[in-house]
């Protein structure tokens, strides 16, 4: 990622220059494909969001400007989904950060069986989300589930909004805490051991060492972990799709977009939602990068 200074460029030999040209040629197909596969769908999605376009009424296709956005942004289902998504994101990422930090410390400090500890911790992350979600679904279904069997007779937690959202958050946390822990542990590994020893020599307690030495030095790693997980959590789809498929007002924005796009065949409204999700995700990323200043990923330090 280092750009050579102009001085060195002038010093390039003929051979080096042709090497460079070859390098660019080798990259070109990949770069072109990247632009095509990521850029074009976004542009296409924006174009579709400006049309009335329902596959069931191909003859009624028309440009309607921003009216799809007005429809979606004044719709109660959309806002319900938005708040559900936000609640799930904030709660699950907070829990994951705390648990992930504990797990990271455990994995990092493990003296015996370090490999075993790390493997065991990572198991949930290695299970396919949909498969795990079905596991949770059956566990919470009265009659088939061991978790539902522990509840009073006649309760079906997946059919009530609050308890269903709690179960979705639980499934998310169970699934992605290992990922959080892994990222945090990587950040922990970069902190020089001497600094912590020096701190304890100066009389810092274990907590002070953690809070005033380890945490500040881990800040970039924590931010990367939080950014990744927040973006992931905001786009939550598979757990909800399996657990409730959005019934009892538990739909996330992605589920709502899917229902309108694939179930409703309404390309206009569905793409409007997709674009709104993209904008939300972009806002989250910008908030992280601007709000947390130079320590944020991509700030070039």
């Amino acid at each position: 990622m280092t750009t050579p200074a102009p001085a060195t460029r002038r010093a390039l030999t003929e051979g080096q220059r042709s090497e460079r040209r070859l390098g660019l040629w080798l990259c070109a197909p990949a770069a072109l494909i990247m632009v095509l596969v990521t850029g074009w769908p976004i542009v296409y999605s924006v174009l579709l969001s400006l049309q009335r376009y329902d596959l069931r009424f191909p003859d009624d296709r028309a440009w309607v400007g921003l009216s799809n956005y007005a429809v979606v942004l004044t719709n109660e289902f959309w806002w319900s989904a938005f708040w559900v998504t936000l609640v799930i994101t904030v709660i699950s990422v907070s829990i994951e950060l705390v648990l992930g930090m504990l797990l990271a410390l455990a994995m990092y400090r493990a003296i015996v069986g370090r490999g075993l500890v790390r493997t065991v911790v990572l198991i949930p992350y290695g299970i396919v989300t949909v498969a795990a979600a079905y596991g949770w679904k059956y566990a919470w279904t009265p009659g088939t589930g061991w978790l539902a069997a522990m509840l009073p007779e006649g309760t079906a937690p997946l059919t009530d909004r609050v308890s269903a959202i709690a179960i979705i958050i639980l499934a998310e946390v169970w699934k992605t805490t290992p990922f959080m822990a892994l990222l945090l542990m990587a950040g922990m590994a970069v902190v020089p051991e001497e600094l912590l020893r020096a701190a304890s020599m100066d009389g810092a307690t274990r907590w002070q060492g953690f809070a005033h030495v380890l945490l500040p030095l881990m800040k970039p790693a924590i931010l990367v972990a939080l950014l990744f997980r927040t973006l992931d959590a905001f786009r939550i789809f598979d757990n909800i799709y399996v657990l409730t498929n959005g019934s009892q007002n538990t739909a996330s924005v992605s589920i709502t977009a899917y229902h309108n796009l694939i179930g409703g065949l309404n390309l206009g409204i569905g793409n409007t939602m997709s674009v709104l999700i993209l904008i939300s995700v972009a806002i989250i990323a910008v908030v992280f990068i601007v709000g947390f200043g130079t320590a944020a990923p991509g700030s070039g330090r």
């Binding site: 040209r21 040629w25 197909p29 072109l32």
Partner: peptide
């Protein structure tokens, strides 16, 4: 000679890209 090799390699690179697109 050198140029020829480079051109050859460049053609190979493009060909690879094209194959990937098929």
């Amino acid at each position: 000679m050198r140029r020829a090799t480079t051109r050859g390699r460049r053609a190979a690179a493009l060909l690879l890209g094209a194959v990937a697109l098929l």
